[in-house]
Simulated assay, not measured.
Amino acid sequence: MRVQTEEWRRFVPGVRMYKGKKTFFYNGELIWDVDTIEDLIYDYDERQTWQVIMILPGVKVIPQHAFYECGNVKTVIMADTVERVEMEAFYLCENLVNIKLSTRLEYIGERAFSFCWSLTSIFIPQSCREICNGAFHSCKKLIILIMPQNIQIGQDVISKTKLSQVCPFIDPLGKGISEEIHEWIKNINADEIFKLHRICSSCHPSEHDIFSIVEQKRSLLSLRQPNSIGITPLEYLCANPFADIDQSKLVSRFVLKMMGETV
């Protein structure tokens, strides 16, 4: 679900159908009291009906436990004002698949996305400076994790994920030296041969840059070259919530170029 900049201006807080999905448009209010477990706005049963959560412009912090156990939410889209996601904000959102983080995000709290069992990928923007302990613990399908080089990472961030199963620095018991694990995550696509992977997984993928590399290699198969964890540039591009590239147009452009046509 893509949201154009001009669309944000029309949104008001509340729950309603949007593009065929029951959507909660969130403006930063407390939904329930963490200490007393008292529902303040929406009760537990209502929260289980939400399919999409849209964090509205102006919200800077997603509070602790804000969407704890919203079990049917599949998509979360954040406006670019969000700077912090606090502890366990999306804990046990077991059907969560699609997340578009704020491009100004600075902080992800402890266990913020733990036990999001359906989550396969997350792209963390360059603005983010810290990911706390267990942020993606037990996201058992998570294999794509893109993050900045200069980020501070806590303990057990990828424990019990699909990514942890292919990490050479984690033993069968799930143990490993954090520094080695973190450096490995950051540098999965560091080699020059994976330049296309880096572009397709960046927060600002360029169609021009992608086309240039594909043209240089003279083969669309370069988009299907797996890296060390088995992910192809095309898979990064398809999963990337920041990408707005028409893949069919890219393929057509390449075919015409190879045929000697003007593109």
Rank of each mutant, 00 (worst) to 15 (best):
I131Q: 03
L96M: 14
C132I: 00
P125H: 06
R104G: 02
E106C: 15
I124C: 14
L92S: 14
M147G: 03
F113C: 09
A112K: 07
S127I: 02
R111H: 10
F123Y: 15
I108N: 05
E110R: 15
L101I: 11
C128G: 10
P125M: 12
T103W: 04
I122A: 07
F123V: 08
R111M: 09
C128F: 09
Q149I: 12
I122D: 05
G134P: 03
L92Q: 08
N98D: 14
I99A: 09
L145S: 02
Y107D: 13
E106A: 12
F115H: 08
C128K: 10
C116Y: 04
G154N: 12
Q152T: 01
I151L: 11
I124H: 09
S121A: 14
E110V: 08
N95T: 11
R129F: 01
E106G: 10
F113R: 03
F136E: 03
Q155M: 06
F115Y: 12
K100T: 06
E106Y: 09
T120E: 15
F136A: 06
S118K: 04
F136H: 05
I124F: 06
Q152N: 04
W117C: 04
I99S: 06
G109V: 03
Y91S: 13
Q149E: 09
F136G: 06
N98Q: 11
E94F: 11
L145N: 00
E110N: 14
E94W: 11
I108K: 00
E130S: 12
S138P: 04
N133P: 00
L101K: 06
Q126W: 01
S118R: 08
F90R: 08
F90G: 03
